[in-house]
Design a protein around this nucleic acid. Structure first.
Lengths: 346, 346
DNA sequence: CTAGGTATCCAAAACGTTTTGCACAACCCT
DNA sequence: AGGGTTGTGCAAAACGTTTTGGATACCTAG
């Protein structure tokens, strides 16, 4: 018995509140009141209305409702790349927070593309969304954002923006993360390290580097990367070709896990073994970090919490019209010591 | 020089088309025409209007526009878990396809929660979104979906639904994937295998198993899991405790990578080495698969394409009102042979 | 000088709700 | 009997657009 093929109904105008009103012999006002409970309605009339609603399959048009209410109960989440597990986790946190308050979440995936970002920011200017959680992942243009933040509810996630100190912000404690790595490597006896940073324009990247340098108190060679696996590979491979790591350099700290993987690959190709010859540390603790070989020592970022907190802050502002008491949340990070670090080779 | 702290402007009603009209000394109609170019307007007047638009920072309210137009240019993407890389990739494809046609994408993350799914489906019933890409990941309730698909544009991604043959569908060729694995293992000399399936109610899961069994032509012991790492671990660990793998069983095929990882862990804990003692194969090719130790042999699913194709189909239907010629797309999969499979031990 | 264009703009309707002020009846209390 | 309350429901305004049928003035050709 094969089920009969599915049939698409002919399109027809969906029932409106007026249709319901007419069919039930009441005014649209009364239907509205029955459905919203905003004012009392005679139980007998209400029952009749409800029955008509069911029969006609009436569902209020949320557009009209939003237009009247002046808000849509939808916010946006702007991120560069949803297929990056960090942002996926962040998105999950944001979606949870939004859902808790009955809000929808529009995914604004920019691919680091400015045009795309602009188009999405247009959604807030045209008031299609009530607010935006902004986690651009690239150095945001301050001017553009500032103009927007003055007029519309925007919360920053993961990345702060120079000069927007009064804004709503949730971010991981990047500096502390860097410090933890510095202490860890120092304790293991390392005295010279190679640091692969992210783009200079990113505060988070700088904070990681600063924290590291301060706590490590050894000699650090900094190379600027772009957070991609290829850059981690390229920088290290090039260095190795040009005569190897700096003398006595026994550790590599990459500002994110992807670059660490790249570094890992380059080291392995050069015949160096991790962690025996060189220790490697990443940042982010993406899922692959624990599965890699060797498992990567890294700093766990609370991506989910960052997304959730930023969104909760935004919604508190949006729904209650008040800026939350703590308008800046710095969330704790955690060092995950795994197999890619070991005491410095003598 | 610290930048001065950011100031939030006092909230005031945003300028409407009437404000612009008044300030420019024309009617709202004219403003609308200037902006849309729908009808010609005297260039002198138009210039004046445009200048006022800029001065007032007027942006048309998309809600009102949508209400009038009868559509919102936003569609939904319903998935169970955005932090799963498979769905993240799928989401990326969907977002790309939507963006290409000027559509926004609302992320509907259900966490396998029926209430949550219902709430999101409400968005389409209330016409807040023009359509929905449905990739529930769990056996969808046919009745609920059928009623909805008759009335609203819905495309199925990744998972088909029994009896909805006429619907828009994009899915990977699960059966072929299973076959590829079967042939691979058979060629390597394996004759007995353990298969960890997904939930029985999922078509995709069954298709993988069927394809495998057919092509392997050896003896297959099937154990039903739930696509989670824990279930892969649990099933295999239990088996090993109760007397080990079936005699001469030299291969394990898990219906997805996560379960394969679980199996890998259980085998390792029992002192069995992969692939020397047992070969292990997964399905999905999530990022961690290639980074695991040993790198996992698995079937690559075109998650991005599935999302993109399903969305493109949906939008073709939504924008042009016509069902696309090929309303069912089966996308090719690819076997990635890595380190977790080897010739059967004698 | 008039009939038919053309260029330019506007008023009003429509989209589908919610909200608010009011009307009408029925009831209660003194 | 009259004033106040309560219960019930409606009409109209408002939200901010786009669309459509005219209206007005000017111009051109006959």
């Amino acid at each position: 018995m094969t089920p009969e093929p599915f049939q698409r109904e002919a399109v027809r105008r969906p029932a409106s509140i007026k249709d319901v009103a007419a069919a039930a012999g009441v005014s649209a006002t009364t239907v509205s009141h029955v459905l919203s409970g905003n004012r009392p309605v005679n139980e007998h009339t209400a029952a009749r209305v409800r029955s008509v609603v069911n029969r006609l399959g009436y569902v209020p048009a949320s557009l009209a409702r939003s237009l009247q209410a002046g808000s849509t109960s939808v916010i946006g989440l702007l991120i560069p790349d949803i297929s990056n597990t960090f942002f996926a986790e962040l998105a999950k946190g944001a979606e949870d927070a939004a859902h808790d308050l009955g809000y929808g979440l529009i995914l604004c995936n920019t691919e680091f593309d400015a045009d795309r970002e602009d188009r999405y920011l247009g959604m807030i200017r045209s008031r299609f969304i009530d607010g935006m959680v902004y986690a651009s992942g690239s150095p945001p243009s301050r001017r553009r954002l500032e103009a927007l933040m003055g007029k519309f509810p925007i919360a920053l996630a993961d990345e702060e923006v120079e000069g927007l100190e009064g804004a709503l912000i949730a971010t991981a404690d990047h500096e502390a993360g860097g410090r933890l790595v510095g202490e860890h490597l120092r304790t293991l006896g390392h005295r010279r390290a190679l640091m692969l940073t992210g783009p200079r324009a990113l505060r988070s990247s700088n904070a990681r580097a600063n924290g590291f340098v301060r706590a490590f108190r050894g000699e650090v060679v900094e190379l600027v990367g772009d957070f991609k696996e290829s850059s981690g590979y390229g920088l290290v491979a090039k260095l190795l070709q040009e005569g190897g790591l700096p003398e006595d350099c026994t550790a590599v700290f990459a500002a994110n896990d992807l670059m660490a993987f790249g570094a890992l690959l380059a080291l392995r190709e050069a015949g160096l073994s991790v962690p025996e010859d060189v220790s490697v540390v990443g940042f982010d603790d993406i899922r692959a970090a624990s599965l890699a070989h060797p498992p990567l020592t890294t700093v766990h970022q609370p991506a989910y919490d960052v997304g959730r907190t930023a969104t909760a802050q935004l919604l508190q502002y949006v729904t209650r019209g008040e800026v939350p008491p703590a308008s800046r949340h710095t969330l704790p990070v955690e060092l995950k010591v795994r197999g890619s670090t070991a005491p410095a080779a003598r």
